[in-house]
């Protein structure tokens, strides 16, 4: 089963280092968002209560087995069952329930404060289409990456194009499903500049495991600058090589599925490639973003992410593939 097939590469450790000690980049325990913070506190408190209960049960169990006759007789009463099995849980659970509901209500209040959703995320098999609405109401289409301004509540409109997906960026907030026929809204607020990772949490068939994304939190000015750049048309090919790459792109019919704003490529089946070179990853956080990965993806995408919609393009003559890959990589 493991014969000479190319191994599926993930984001390599190089990028991991760039992310700054990558452990915890997708961990609910290293929260950087408001909601994730609240939940982590709830987790620690509820977890401690549960641990204490477990210890209590164990102590009683050991005493029941090993205690002196007097202790055992004291344990072996209906009263113990009523107090340990009924009164104690009612008290403890009442507290936990109220606390959890208050956390829930606090989150709801936050989302009311955030206002209309300014980002739409569409789940697809197996990538994310991300549409930002800038301050002038223009739509800016991007993919597989969510950029957020620091410290602002942002509402995300979550929908799906095919099956059920679930949007989960553990450092920001809990997950919320994307369900056909429904629109869900998730409010997030990131309080740390940096990069974290998220992943589809609802099994969506085939390459469910390879449907991840990065969340990049930027200071407000940088975010606005980035959004303006993202809204602009693609950089025209500068060098001769890039021009040839662009020609190969057009000739090979890539525009049937992909858009590069500012060119005649207007396809909407695959991700928008206008600024693909500036993203953190390729193929929904499956490959690092470099020319080599572009080339591998174009020719070998069915091995890297089986069942994805893109056909394999293996017909390029010597050099053609490289110019195409370099051109795509230049779309910063």
């Amino acid at each position: 089963m493991s014969h000479s097939r190319p191994t599926t590469p993930m984001v390599p450790s190089l990028l991991g280092l760039a992310l700054g000690g990558c452990e915890g980049v997708q961990s609910a325990l290293s929260a950087s968002g408001d909601e994730a913070h609240d939940i982590r506190l709830l987790l620690w408190i509820a977890g401690a209560v549960c641990a204490a209960t477990l210890v209590l049960v164990l102590v009683f169990g050991i005493l029941a087995f090993n205690g002196s006759a007097r202790v055992r007789a004291w344990i072996a009463r209906d009263q113990l069952i009523v107090s340990g099995g009924l009164v104690l849980p009612v008290v403890v659970l009442s507290g936990l329930l109220a606390y959890a509901l208050l956390v829930l209500q606090a989150g709801a209040a936050r989302s009311a404060f955030a206002g209309e959703p300014s980002v739409t995320i569409i789940g697809k098999r197996w990538w994310w289409k991300v549409i930002y609405r800038d301050s002038e109401g223009r739509e800016v289409v991007s993919a597989n990456e969510l950029r957020l301004p620091l410290g602002q509540p942002i509402s995300l409109r979550l929908i799906t194009d095919d099956v059920i997906h679930s949007f989960w960026a553990p450092k920001l907030a809990g997950k919320l499903d994307m369900i056909p026929g429904r629109t869900n809204v998730l409010t997030v607020q990131s309080n740390e500049v940096g990069v974290s990772r998220g992943q589809c949490a609802e099994y969506c068939g085939g390459a469910h495991a390879l449907m991840a994304f990065y969340v990049v939190t930027l200071p407000e000015e940088e975010y606005q600058a980035w959004l303006a750049r993202e809204a602009s048309k693609a950089l025209p090919p500068a060098t001769e090589a890039e021009k040839r790459g662009h020609a190969v792109f057009v000739e090979s019919g890539c525009g049937a599925c992909h858009t590069i704003r500012g060119t005649e490529a207007r396809g909407t089946i695959g991700p928008d490639l206008t600024h693909v070179g500036s993203r953190m990853s390729l193929a929904a956080a499956t490959l690092p973003n470099d020319a080599n990965s572009f080339a591998r993806w174009i020719t070998d995408n069915q091995h890297i992410k089986p069942e994805n919609l893109m056909p394999p393009f293996r017909h390029f003559k010597a050099g053609e593939l490289d110019t195409l890959a370099n051109y795509l990589d230049s779309l910063k």
Partner: peptide
């Protein structure tokens, strides 16, 4: 009573999650 607690603590028709 616990479902009463929920009624008391939560907005009635809040559609969004947190």
């Amino acid at each position: 009573s616990w479902s009463g607690v929920a009624i008391g603590l939560l907005e009635t028709c809040d559609q969004t999650q947190m």
